[in-house]
Amino acid sequence: MKQVFGYPESLQTRPNHYCPGCTHGIIHRLVAEAIDELQVREKAIAVAPVGCAVLAYNYFNCDAQQAAHGRAPAVATGIKRALPDRIVFTYQGDGDLASIGMAEIVHAANRGENITVIFVNNAIYGMTGGQMAPTTLPGQKTTTSPYGRDTATTGYPIQVCEMLSTLKAPAFIARVSVHDPKNVLKAKEAIKKAFEYQVNGKGFTLVEVLSTCPTNWGMTPVEALKWLENNMIPAFPLGTFRSLEEVSK
């Protein structure tokens, strides 16, 4: 018998700290698998955000820099410019990327920085205890939208992929989900493609991964996957928003 599914080399063996059933763990693994398959682990440099993934440097088996809240794309820019042949990626949550770090992500994308951004969207601030995120759904209750997000005063969930796709420079932008095995496979393909683009020097790549937060959503992990499918996907349609190959076709 041959092993068809095992532990990726680019993931350290230490167990992660995420709550049971949190899909951060799946996304970590997909990133590690992509790095393994492209054989770039020794060249990889991760940039960890502020957010639940602040300890990402403890999990990825590669060099890493921990960035201030929202600044990961700027830090990644600095690293990549200093070491253009290395594979540099950020791993950011929705508060980090789409709120405090909106300027950084837009401009890194607009410069076409040859980096890969893994954007984990779970519609809530997990780290600080479940406050409203820029991606919180209309009507969704959080600790800072106790009556449900009111679009009249707090606006609508920011659709990062759609927004960044209005820029000319990005090479690859896709939104995927990890709520079931089929979608996990698709997510893996997108993440791998993004890294592949970087390896080939194609420019800025971003994969938004819809993710769960069972603890702050107040659901069992399995309920949370269902909630993601039923509520988040309609608000954040899955798909590839930008791909250079499609452009050249």
Binding site: T142, W217, G218, T220
Partner: peptide, 13 residues
């Protein structure tokens, strides 16, 4: 508060 109580939800079963 109610916010903290939400985390109970994941143990509901």
């Amino acid at each position: 508060d109610p916010v903290g109580a939400r985390a109970l939800g994941r143990f509901n079963p």
